[in-house]
Structure formats: C-alpha cells, structure tokens
Amino acid sequence: MRVSIASEQTYRQLADALHRGVYAPGDRLPAERTLATRYGVSRETLRNALNRLADEHLLESVVGSGWFVAPEVVGEPPSVLQTFSEMARARGLRPTAHVLVCRVRAAKLAEADQLRVPPGSEVLELVRLRGMERTPICLDETVLPLDLAAPLLDADLEDTSLYEQLESLCDVRIHRSTYSVRAEVADAELAGQLNVPVGWPVLVGEEVGYSDTGRPVLVGATRYRGDAYKFQADLFRPL
C-alpha cells in the first residue's frame, strides 16, 4: 500500500513539473538515481511513475540515453500545402528559424533539372534550423533560382516564413508541391542541431515547389525529428 501511495505522489509531482514547464518538450530528464533521491523514493517506485507518464505520452524512454519529455508533434493536414510557420501557429506555438547558411552558388545538375534552369546557373542556397518555442524540430535546406530569389539576400530570414517572404518580396506564390518522405538516422552533426542522440530516427521530406504559373521555384529537403512530425495524405483509387 505504501508503495502505491509513494508511486502516486511521485507521479503527481513529476506530472506537475511537466505541466509547469520545468522540463521543456524534448528535454532529457535527470538520471533515475538523481530523480529517485530528489523525490525520496526507490528506483522501482520512480520507474513506475515514469512508465505511467510514458503511457500518457508525456515522456519517452530511449534505451541507453534515458528519459525525455515528449516533444510537440506536428503534422500537415491531408492534401493541404501548409508552411512550418502555419503548422506552429495553428497549435498556438511560436515558430522559430535560425539561418545557418545563406549563399549564392552554382546549381548542381539534379537541382538544375528540377528547377528547369541551365546547369551551373546561380541559385540561392538557404539552410535554417526550424523550431517551435524552445524545441528544435527540423533542419530545412532550400535551393531557389537566383533570378527569382535575389531580394531574399538582403532580407531578415530569422524567425520568418520563407513562403511568406517569397510572396511579399519576390512576388512568387507557392501554389503546389510534389512531396516525398523517406527515413534516415541522425549523424553526429544533425543530432547536435536537433538536440537528439546520434542514430535518432529522422523523417526527410523532399519537395519541389511550383508557382501558380507552373514554374518550379524551389527544391528542398527538410529533416524532421522522427518523434516530432507525421505526414498525412488522402489517397484515392481511380474509378
């Protein structure tokens, strides 16, 4: 009976800490030994409380790495092309973006084919780390033809929507996107950027974005934390 009471009290204390934001989404909790000492309970009692919070999808256990606060999971509505910023705002969260790379270079052959420009044409390469509140969610890499995207070179692209900047500064509106999703694991560099362990599952969304005139205006690859993104689509069979 005492164990049950202790487990319930520990569960409530941990749940209260999570709801008060003591640990942010994606944060790693202190070691079990440390938590058990802090709450004055045995490791077994603590683990019962942690498992209960995991069953409620508030915590996640990663073998060899410990316990993590479950991140905010984002996803696109079926058949709707929605920006990262729109997904965040729809959930009442503040979208963030930190520019890691913004440079002009020559288009690679595959990029030139996708953008329908001559190989070697000048393109703008933009790499940004996107997040929601304090939680890093994805690494966003985008390539655009420089003749369309030149105004972005002088723009402040921190904490902004690229789609919105394209429309306001370049008079380019993304109308549709061809999109594919594949899985990979995070290497050391990506793991550090997304604040996850090396080998963490990552979902890679690759797209070609088209303007309302049908011209391809960007190619991109977005690497999402596998625990923070889901992709939805309506699929139809022909009549």
Rank of each mutant, 00 (worst) to 15 (best):
L93W: 10
G40V: 04
E125G: 03
L35R: 05
M87R: 11
P71R: 10
G66A: 04
P30R: 14
R94L: 13
N48Q: 14
N51D: 09
G75C: 10
R94T: 15
G66I: 12
S65R: 11
A112S: 02
R116D: 06
G40F: 00
E86T: 13
D113Q: 14
D55G: 02
R89A: 10
L58I: 04
R38N: 13
A88R: 02
V127Q: 05
A54M: 03
V62A: 09
P30M: 08
P118R: 09
L93Y: 08
R43T: 01
L53E: 10
Y39S: 03
T37W: 14
S85I: 06
R33I: 15
R52I: 09
A110M: 14
V101W: 02
A54W: 01
G64E: 09
L109F: 14
L129N: 01
E44W: 04
H98A: 15
V101Q: 01
W67C: 06
E76H: 11
Y39C: 00
E125L: 05
V62I: 10
V99F: 01
L100I: 12
L46I: 10
V123L: 01
A112C: 02
R43E: 02
R52M: 00
E32W: 07
G75V: 09
V80S: 11
V127T: 11
T34K: 03
P95M: 02
Q114K: 10
T34H: 11
A31C: 07
G64L: 04
G75E: 06
H57Y: 06
V74H: 08
W67R: 12
A112Q: 04
G75K: 02
T45E: 01
R43M: 00
G92A: 09
T37G: 13
K108H: 12
T37A: 15
Q114Y: 05
E44T: 15
E32R: 12
E32A: 13
R47P: 02
R89V: 08
E32G: 12
A36G: 14
R91S: 05
E122W: 05
P119M: 05
A90Q: 12
S85A: 11
T83H: 01
R128D: 04
L100A: 11
P77D: 00
R91C: 08
A106N: 09
V127E: 09
G92K: 11
V80Y: 08
V99N: 02
E122H: 06
E111Q: 08
T96Q: 00
C102G: 10
E76Y: 10
H57R: 08
S85W: 02
E56Q: 07
T45N: 07
L126S: 12
S42T: 11
K108C: 06
A106D: 13
R94D: 11
E32T: 15
V62F: 04
S121I: 03
S61K: 08
A70I: 07
P119G: 02
A90S: 13
A54H: 03
A112Y: 00
C102I: 12
T96S: 00
V74N: 10
E60L: 04
V127G: 04
R105A: 15
V63Y: 12
S65N: 13
S79C: 12
A112G: 01
A107G: 09
P30T: 10
Y39V: 03
P118V: 07
A90F: 05
L93N: 09
L115K: 00
P95N: 04
